[in-house]
Design a protein around this nucleic acid. Structure first.
Lengths: 160, 160
DNA sequence: TGGATTGTGTTATGAGATAACATAACAATA
DNA sequence: TATTGTTATGTTATCTCATAACACAATCCA
């Protein structure tokens, strides 16, 4: 997404219309449960993430924030992203400096991604960190969150 | 390392003296095999990484580069880091924007870290990406490199 | 020995993120 | 329903991290 690649980017198509509405409603609900507030800037950033076909940079969000074209100030967006990450609504992809909405219900603070170096797609998959958590335990670590990023080529980009 | 934490940082003590010399010699050897050149700036950056007790930021390396106190120019260090990562001598820890020497022989381009949010230690451990690689294959991805970063507390920092 | 390749030096600038402080909205409760 | 603590936002400025672009030097190799 947002790349120079000619292939389709089908990893996670962006939401729109009622699908988007439902996703936002669900987020509202989960916030209520968690005694957290999905305030307008937070909701707007989540909306932008959900609408996107692929990972968005912070400054993409900043530029797209205002519905009338006015950008947001950086802290507005970074704060919203912090919130969304804390609640598990979004993930930061470290190796891309980019953000995606969480696609996996109840993934908590751990996430795993398959990132295509050609088309830029980032597919979230169900993390199974069994072996890694076992290794952490052996080393005496108390793990709070795990992120895994696998770089390579998606199916479409291999067949070129 | 470089943190505000009072705990010891025993993850990977830095090398010095003959241990450092041996590690650098080994790197020379591996470069020769790979038809790559461990030029002075590359060797210097590797040396700094090996000497450190913990992850180093790029600008730490830039500041420490000159033996007489003169800093390096950023591209000098970033290029050396690129080289060292390409050859598997160093890893970038994405969630820290920092770099460590590779501690695992033949780890290639994949790496896994246990990162202590208190003392800043980053312990590299032997990656076993079995389940994740299986998931990638099911999704049709061709994986080139995997990095995993587990955040939490090391043993010492839990018992505070 | 000359051309291609790879690496370095240098200047400048682009991208990503946060500190600090003032103000506003909300929630609890007295 | 005024008061107070807490949480969130708005705003300015600045900091950290990383790379583009180009000239020059060293090395490789036909």
């Amino acid at each position: 997404m947002g790349s120079d690649c000619h292939h389709a980017d089908g990893a996670h198509p962006g939401l729109s219309g009622s699908g988007l509405g439902r996703a936002l409603d669900k987020a509202e609900e989960r916030c209520a449960h968690a005694q957290a507030r999905l305030t307008p800037p937070r909701k707007r950033v989540l909306e932008l993430l959900l609408q996107s076909d692929g990972p968005l940079k912070a400054y993409d969000l900043i530029a797209a924030f205002g519905t009338e074209g006015q950008p947001a100030k950086p802290p507005t967006v970074y704060r919203a992203l912090d919130f969304l990450e804390r609640l598990g609504f979004a993930h930061r992809i470290e190796s891309l400096n980019a953000y995606v909405p969480c696609r996996i219900d109840g993934a908590g603070h751990s996430a795993a991604f398959l990132i295509c170096d050609c088309c830029g797609a980032a597919a979230e998959f169900e993390p199974d960190f069994g072996p890694q958590l076992a290794a952490a335990e052996r080393a005496g670590y108390a793990v709070r969150a795990v992120t895994l990023e696998a770089r390579g080529l998606c199916g479409a980009c291999q067949t070129s």
